[in-house]
């Protein structure tokens, strides 16, 4: 792991660390990721049907699946929000410097065979662009979808108001727009998983939880002492 520490006079010095095969995605995190992925797929597929873009499901079935999947996803998000805060993992999503470097890498460096400008670490599981993308996923696209979705779901509670007709139009608009953004996110996200050392490297990591990351001496000592994180070597 390359940690960047300030040596006091403003220049940054790299400390080289040993690489180890450690679990960077805990069991819950992986469960969250894959169940969320499945639910989003189901919601997107049924949602497209409800929007009238395909007729592969009848409307009643599509509404039923869409609604239950949404409810499950809401529960999952409640748990995950709790998990993110109790474990402190929410810090992973904070803005990091070097976004432009990462963008430059994906636009150009990756083609030239340059190394990724960002090194994964135990506390730095996501690169700067990832953090930004996931942050907007969790703070913009996600909330726009579930907030509009929940208001949509309880339509019958506000359908009696004079503004309900315009309200429904607005809610449907926001929900549809956010769904298109979500779809776009998923396409890019899935593609990005193929940009690791091998095309399936990141996917395997997300399944097993283990990745080869550099550990500082302190991290290594901590892990060996406490076994708080499993390490394969």
């Amino acid at each position: 792991m390359n940690t960047q520490v300030n040596n006091g006079n403003g220049t940054k010095v790299r400390q080289k660390g040993e690489k180890h095969y450690v679990m960077i995605y805990s069991r819950y995190e992986r469960f969250w990721h894959w169940s969320q992925a499945m639910l989003i797929f189901v919601l997107f597929y049924t949602g497209l049907g409800l929007h009238g873009l395909h007729n592969l499901l009848n409307f009643q079935l599509a509404v039923t699946i869409h609604t239950y999947a949404a409810l499950v996803l809401i529960v999952l998000w409640i748990f995950t929000t709790f998990w993110n805060f109790t474990t402190g993992q929410w810090r992973q999503y904070l803005f990091k410097e070097g976004v432009m470097k990462v963008i430059r890498f994906y636009a150009y460096g990756i083609l030239k065979g340059e190394p990724h400008p960002y090194k994964k670490g135990l506390q730095r599981k996501q690169n700067a662009l990832q953090s930004l993308a996931y942050m907007s996923f969790m703070l913009l696209i996600g909330p726009a979808l579930w907030a509009s979705g929940m208001i949509y779901l309880i339509y019958d509670l506000w359908s009696g108001y004079a503004w309900s007709s315009q309200g429904l139009t607005l809610i449907a608009f926001v929900h549809t727009a956010a769904a298109y953004l979500m779809g776009t996110f998923v396409i890019i996200h899935v593609y990005m998983t193929t940009t690791g050392k091998t095309p399936t490297h990141y996917i395997k990591t997300m399944i097993t939880g283990y990745d080869n990351v550099e550990l500082t001496e302190a991290e290594k000592a901590y892990i060996e002492e406490t076994h708080a994180i499993s390490m394969k070597d």
Partner: peptide, 22 residues
């Protein structure tokens, strides 16, 4: 607006562009 019957033309076009573009 009635779900399943109605859609927003411009939003759909932009949506297709976003998905297709991606």
């Amino acid at each position: 607006y009635m779900p399943g019957r109605d859609s927003f033309r411009w939003l759909d076009i932009l949506g297709y562009l976003a998905l297709g573009g991606a």
